[in-house]
Amino acid sequence: MSQINVRVDGASYTDDVEPRTLLVHYLREQLGKVGTVVGCDTSNCGACTVHLDGEAVKSCTVFAVQADGCEVTTIEGIGADGALHPMQKAFHEMHGLQCGFCTPGMIMASIDLVNDNPDPTEDEVREGIEGNLCRCTGYQNIVRAVQQAAGEMHGRSAGATETLGAQS
């Protein structure tokens, strides 16, 4: 067992973990942060994406001990004062989710993408989230959501995106 100190979604934790424990298992099983989910065994699907010191990581490829001394943000910690993060709001507005299982990871990866690229084109969004799999949406509305959120996160008007349900 190794002792780690981490801040997760603004609270500090000190825990003993097995060296082999993955960050995602630590979050889910020891902290009860079940908003972050496991979708595969091979770091392909990205459902477990969280922010480690502000950068998106797949928490199934990080050992809990590697997060020692770090700041972890999960889907449960991105809204400020009970309000939704612009990315969460955009996924809702643009119907960027159906079953919602990939959504926490998809949102966390998308926030990181927009932090790096404030105004991504459609192709840049598609390339940027290719490490996150969604089986329901066909991605089109996710792309719309990311572009809308990018606008809001960087102070541009959100009105530029196309109207949903207009079927084009």
Partner: peptide, 23 residues
């Protein structure tokens, strides 16, 4: 109407009850 979904609130915030979340 293109109503935004009621389901989304819990799904976009990680407040979901997936079976594997059960303890």
């Amino acid at each position: 109407q293109p109503r935004r979904r009621k389901e989304d609130a819990r799904l976009i915030t990680g407040r979901t009850t997936w079976t594997d979340n059960m303890v």
